Amino acid sequence: MRSLPLSALQHYAFCPRQCALIHNEQAWAENFLTAQGRALHERVDSGEPETRKGIRFERSVHVSAEKLGVHGVLDMVECDMQTGRLKPIEYKRGKPKPAPFDEIQLCAQALCLEEMTGQTITEGALWYGQTRHRLPVAFSDGLRAETLATITEVRELLESGQTPPPEYGKRCKACSLVEVCQPVLLGKDKSVKYVAVFWK
């Protein structure tokens, strides 16, 4: 079974075409937003482990869940030194989104930690650079089910080797791959349908 990078889940939740372009076609482009995000993660990842008020902060934690078929690097894991409870923390440059893109990625991190440690992880948190605010995330049954479904969908997409056609929307304005994807131009391209009809 192909092990998926955790980042592919967030890419897929944002846009399946973006996910296929990045993880199958190895396409990448950086814009101001991705550069800000990379700089933020470099600052977070470069920090040394530390303990404050009974909480151990571990940065750049590598995880791999064989049964789940997912791997990646977590920005931070907090460990309560008294209880041993773990809490994944994900850093994002922007602000909370209306759709649960980030929550799915964070929940997948928790599922990885659960498989590796045998511990049930009930919550994590998302820290947003634009709001300078930490948002608690409870790993409910609903979020867990949505995360597992997303993992299955991403695996099917990437193993198919197919890149979905473009669908232009508001999200395209924030996507660093908009010049590679060409959603407006390719969305109007009827040649594929024309060839399919012509050769029937």
Rank of each mutant, 00 (worst) to 15 (best):
Q162K: 08
A35F: 07
R134W: 13
A39N: 12
F101Q: 14
P96E: 04
R144K: 08
Y91G: 02
E78I: 07
G124L: 04
K92F: 09
Q26K: 09
R56Q: 15
F57P: 03
K92D: 12
L158H: 01
P88L: 11
C79K: 15
L158V: 01
D45F: 10
W28K: 06
L111V: 02
F101W: 12
E159M: 05
I104P: 01
A138E: 08
S140N: 01
E58H: 11
Q119F: 02
T152D: 14
I151G: 06
R52I: 15
L86P: 00
E167H: 08
T117G: 12
E159S: 03
R144F: 05
V197P: 04
T122C: 11
A145Y: 09
R134T: 13
E115H: 00
C181T: 07
R171A: 15
G37A: 06
A174I: 05
K53W: 03
L86R: 07
A145T: 05
E103L: 13
Y168D: 09
Q36A: 12
T147I: 03
P165I: 06
E114F: 06
G118V: 03
A8Q: 03
W199E: 09
G69N: 00
P5E: 02
A149S: 08
P49C: 12
D189R: 10
S140T: 11
I151W: 11
A65Q: 03
A196V: 08
H133L: 11
N31I: 00
A39T: 06
I121A: 12
G161A: 11
L111H: 00
V73D: 06
V61Y: 07
P98R: 15
L21M: 13
R56D: 13
P100R: 09
C181P: 03
K97R: 09
I55C: 08
G124A: 07
F198H: 07
E167Y: 12
S7N: 08
L157S: 14
G54M: 00
C175Y: 01
F198Y: 14
C172M: 10
I89V: 15
H11M: 11
T150A: 10
L157Q: 09
Q119D: 03
R43I: 09
T83E: 11
A99I: 05
Y194V: 15
E114D: 02
C19E: 07
E167R: 12
A196Q: 13
M81E: 10
I55T: 14
G47R: 14
L33R: 05
L186N: 10
V178R: 14
K190H: 15
A13L: 04
L40T: 00
A125M: 12
V195C: 10
Q10L: 11
T150D: 06
